[in-house]
Design a protein around this nucleic acid. Structure first.
Lengths: 220, 220
DNA sequence: AATAATTTTTAGATTTACCTAAAAATATAA
DNA sequence: TTATATTTTTAGGTAAATCTAAAAATTATT
């Protein structure tokens, strides 16, 4: 199996690849909070072990093997998050760092039993889908709140930013998973969005609206 | 805080010190499955950090700080074992290795909430006491089964050997925690012990009897 | 297309935890 | 109490993951 560090690289490459396909050295370095030179070293090692395809100066892509390993880590991370929130009463903004450690525990039996204990959850406390033990999970359909038009309605189904500060902010505004919202206005000046939630009118910044995911298709 | 490896050294020194007080380099090396030279290196580091008192050629003893750190790790290990057995239906012989990894997760909140979730258990699946969050726990009173005399009765309250092979063996013989036993005979030839358990007569080797702990004071 | 800017890689060091082989200290036995 | 055996330490080295500084390749700009 892989080391703690190798696993973190695989996970980060996987997340970056979701958007871009080919993953750049500098992008990995930024996410790993390390230097590009260190990334090059590690990439070579991962390539040697068959986790990534690597062409000098052209970035990396995960191999089948690499993707499977990454998905397994994502699965562990998200299951542990569910455990922390559902069973230990953590808030959704408190779980990330601990799950970051727990995801590296190596035991297939542990994860399968945890999955069962939690009732085979399909998504984590932030709305992200949890891969099943074969690595399969539904591609989530969502529309960013920022892309909704005035009058559109929707349900909050996820977030694309997991920082504690952001999540605490949402919590305070009542913008949690499952909540119904309607776009009542968009401010030209700063792009902020006025939404109707639980009968109340609130204003959220463009930055916040960008990271809220909804189940609306935009039409009401 | 300490590294994964440092924590393992502290834990092992703590367990060795329970019996002997002063802990020898070779004893640590054996437990850590490493070489004495490596142990000397690590000991120096732990001494510098104030976790142990160390005099060359004289072995080590834990400082207050070192003992506290060790007890915290033991607490985590045992709480996770309870979780695995009580919540995830692991058998008592399956939990050691996984708990060995889980004990290194660094989060006070996690452990306090886990403790609460489990109902503040006082002992782990092998009968070992669980320190509370202040590191306090009752010194367990026990008599080794091997030290009981013919006619003595007792209850199995723990084991002093956690290998899967040993625990599976006990399981098969029905010698699990809480079971009532009575010594019916001791064989001169090989020191094996005949015991009465659940109305049945069974024979256990001296080696097995040495590692079963009971609550009997020897008199019946 | 040539130059400038950016990205990525190489080269050479550092730190942590480990190793082997040999030396030094301590403990045991003749 | 000297010789022998055991334990422990030192010295010098290795592998993993990181670093800095400089070189090389790629991309963007004029």
């Amino acid at each position: 199996m892989q080391s703690f560090t190798e696993e973190n690289y695989l996970k980060i490459i996987y997340h970056l690849a979701e958007k871009t396909g080919n993953v750049q050295t500098n992008a990995i370095a930024e996410q790993m909070q390390t230097k590009p030179a260190s990334v090059t070293d590690m990439i070579k090692k991962l390539a040697e072990k068959g986790f990534v395809d690597y062409i000098k100066y052209q970035g990396v892509t995960l191999t089948e093997k690499g993707r499977n390993a990454a998905i397994e880590i994502v699965r562990k991370h998200r299951l542990w998050e569910v455990f922390l929130v559902d069973k230990l009463n953590f808030k959704w903004d408190e779980v990330h760092d601990v799950a970051e450690e727990l995801e590296h525990i190596k035991s297939t039996a542990l994860i399968e039993r945890l999955d069962e204990f939690l009732g085979f959850p399909k998504s984590d406390p932030h709305g992200d889908p949890i891969p099943d033990k074969n690595g399969r999970f539904a591609k989530t359909q969502f529309t960013k709140l920022i892309d909704l038009k005035i009058g559109d309605q929707g349900t909050i189904t996820g977030v694309s930013q997991h920082s504690s500060a952001f999540l605490k902010h949402l919590e305070k505004l009542g913008l949690t998973l499952g909540k119904q919202i309607e776009i009542s206005d968009v401010t030209d000046f700063d792009g902020s969005v006025e939404i109707l939630i639980a009968g109340k009118q609130i204003n959220i910044s463009r930055e916040v609206a960008k990271h809220i995911l909804t189940s609306s298709n935009g039409k009401n």
